[in-house]
Structure formats: structure tokens, C-alpha cells
Simulated scan of single mutants.
Amino acid sequence: MIKKKTILLICITFFTVLEAHKIPGIELELKKLENDKIHVSAFFKRSKRPLVGNEVRLVSMFDNRILTTTKTTIKGAILDIPKESYWVYLLVRDNDLVKDGIPPEKGFVKIAKKEKVAFLYTTLSVIGFFIISIFIGYRKSLRFKENLS
């Protein structure tokens, strides 16, 4: 019984760590408009009620400088598309919701090379800690059995 609870706890921890960077229930939507403009809107998934008054930032992928900042309204926010690769940040309380930016009509002048290594490193570290915890638990169970005999 204890082993089942331990395995369940480890599985829940594993999947929680992997999905920790999402804000449940909030959607960030990006639409490309004419003349290299972008429409940013944020809303609750269930009620489709828009988020109003939250800060939207366009952040450069090269040096993490803020390119543009504005607040969301009921209709969303309309911003100029930068000429370099960027992220769209939506600040919701203490959390950030991040999406890659849409390129302009003629493409980006500067393109950042993106590597998805954070997910890989997180997964490998969780698996490593999982293996270490199994090893420690096995050694403790052997010592416990020795003490009983």
C-alpha cells in the first residue's frame, strides 16, 4: 500500500513539474492585421470573458529588452510588429503567459535561433531525481530488513 502511494506521489510530482509553466484557464490569442500590426487578446477559456487591464509586452529574443508595452482592453491591444524575433508576454498577477511573436509581411530582419532545451533539461532532472529516490528507498528497505533479522 505504501509503495502504491509513493509511486502515485512521484507520478503526480513528475507531471506537475512538466506542466508548471502554464496558467490554467487563460488563453492568449495573436492575430495578424494589415500594415504589420498584431492584435493581442486574452480571455478566460471557459467564460470567454476578456482580461482587461493586464500588461502586454513585446520582448526581444536577442537581448530581452522590452520593445513595446501596452495594456489590454475589452477589444484587446493592437501593436506594431517588430522587425526582429520577439515574444509576447501577458502579465497576469505574478505569472507570465508567453507566446512567440508573429513575423511581419517581409519576415524578420534578425531571427533568433530557438532551442527547446528547457523542457529537455527539466525532464532529465526529474528522471534523475526519480532514479536517485528509488536507489535511496531500496537501500533503506535493505537496512530495515537487516535490522529486523
Rank of each mutant, 00 (worst) to 15 (best):
P82Q: 05
Y89N: 10
I131W: 00
A118E: 11
L51V: 10
K71C: 00
R93N: 15
F14N: 01
T13F: 12
L30C: 08
K31A: 12
A42S: 15
F144E: 13
F62G: 14
I7P: 00
F44D: 08
G137M: 02
S125Y: 02
F129C: 11
K45M: 09
K3S: 13
I136S: 07
I81S: 03
F44Q: 12
K75G: 10
E27S: 13
F130A: 10
D36K: 06
Y89H: 15
E84F: 00
P50A: 07
L148G: 12
K83W: 01
A112R: 13
K116I: 05
S149P: 06
L28S: 10
L28G: 09
Y86E: 03
S85Q: 09
G101D: 01
L30P: 06
W87D: 08
D36F: 02
I132C: 08
S60G: 13
G107A: 01
L120P: 00
K145C: 09
T6G: 01
A118P: 00
I131K: 08
V88M: 04
P82N: 06
T13G: 13
S47G: 04
E84H: 06
K106C: 00
I26N: 07
L90V: 07
H21E: 07
K22N: 09
L90T: 08
T72Y: 05
F62N: 11
Y86N: 04
F62L: 12
E55N: 07
T69P: 00
S85V: 08
V56P: 06
R93P: 00
M1A: 14
L91F: 05
T6V: 12
S125F: 08
E105R: 10
F44V: 02
V40F: 05
P104S: 05
K45A: 12
K116M: 05
L90E: 02
K48N: 12
K113L: 09
V56A: 03
R49I: 12
A118T: 13
L30I: 08
L97F: 04
G137K: 06
F129I: 03
A112C: 10
Y138C: 04
F135W: 09
M61A: 15
K32I: 04
E29H: 15
R46A: 14
W87K: 14
V17K: 05
